[in-house]
């Protein structure tokens, strides 16, 4: 038998679940979150002052995926001088692992966007 109490419980559960579902729907997707955080790191470390806001200047971001993987790009960023790039700051010890992860994901994304805009 469905009592009044049960009805309230069901109604309350329905409302609770609906708001949770709405929250999930409205929240940023993981990709977007990473993109935002990567962009923040990109700008905080003044990468844009040489590479441009969209990676369109120094460094040819459009071929980034051909030249690096998610494992090798952090090695380059941490010590560009080892790759004969003497004008890029040495980020080793200056950037956290999570910041580097967000940054690398963002750099690849910029490369993809540049390639799409070329098509």
């Amino acid at each position: 038998m469905i009592t009044k109490k049960n009805t309230y419980v069901i109604l309350a559960s329905f409302l609770f679940l609906s708001t949770q579902a709405l929250d999930i729907y409205q929240s940023t997707t993981p990709v977007e979150k990473s993109k935002d955080e990567g962009k923040q790191v990109f700008e905080r470390f003044a990468c844009n002052s040489c590479h441009g806001n969209s990676g369109e200047m120094e460094g040819d971001f459009s071929t980034l995926k051909e030249r690096f993987t998610a494992e090798t790009l952090p090695e380059y960023i941490n010590n560009p001088q080892a790759y004969d790039n003497k004008q890029m700051p040495v980020y080793d010890g200056m950037i956290s692992d999570s910041e580097m992860e967000d940054l690398v994901a963002y750099l690849f994304l910029l490369g993809e966007e540049l390639n799409r805009s070329d098509d």
């Binding site: 040489c50 700051p89 200056m94």
Partner: peptide, 21 residues
């Protein structure tokens, strides 16, 4: 002048060149 970070660990970007040599 060799790594591009100032006393406060703030990045020193272009046009300041680096002099690792």
């Amino acid at each position: 002048i060799t790594k591009g970070f100032n006393k406060d660990n703030k990045v020193i970007s272009y046009p300041m060149p680096l002099y690792p040599d």
